[in-house]
Amino acid sequence: MELFYIFIGAVFVNNFVLVRFLGICPFMGVSKQTETALGMGLATTFVMVVSAALTWLLQWFVLEPFGLPFLQTPVFILSIASMVQLVEMFLNKTSPGLHRALGIYLPLITTNCAVLGFSLIAVQGAYSFIQSIIFGLGAGVGFTLALMLLAGIREEMQFADVPEPLKGIGIAFVIAGLLSLAFSGFSGLV
């Protein structure tokens, strides 16, 4: 039951993009079409779950026992970057189809602050191993959901008469604001 709360909390209540403001760059950059948004979302979810496991092990078996928590940022970001690289090579070798679908998004994910931000939050929350992974899954699903919602609306916006200065990123921010307002209705749910 607690795992369910963690999941729902990460998807809706503390949505990584709309409430915590993590991963805004891909949120604005890759949300013009629902298809690419879905690819980016799935790739990010995958990386989040894997890095949830990786950073949990690093934190509690390397950094804490050796008294090195101050090295957290460099260690986490380097491990996530290397891990993403490895996953890309692995996908390229084993399943070219999946690589074609997700491959181009993988390098972008390294600088997606949602992944590192998630790792730092998970460590602060002192979650167990399983809880961390569920939290990562929820964070990724929440990211995908926000991305898909914005992309769906932006696709429709092409036919709308948007004032010239607001065109493009400006109106996207205003839409994101309304989405965020809708998500704030979830506060206090968990």
């Binding site: 403001f21 996207a172 921010f173 205003v174 994101a176 604001g177 309304l178 307002l181």
Partner: peptide, 11 residues
């Protein structure tokens, strides 16, 4: 609140 941040930046 978070929604206000998005709208402010957009405008």
């Amino acid at each position: 609140l978070p929604p206000g941040a998005f709208v402010t930046v957009g405008i």
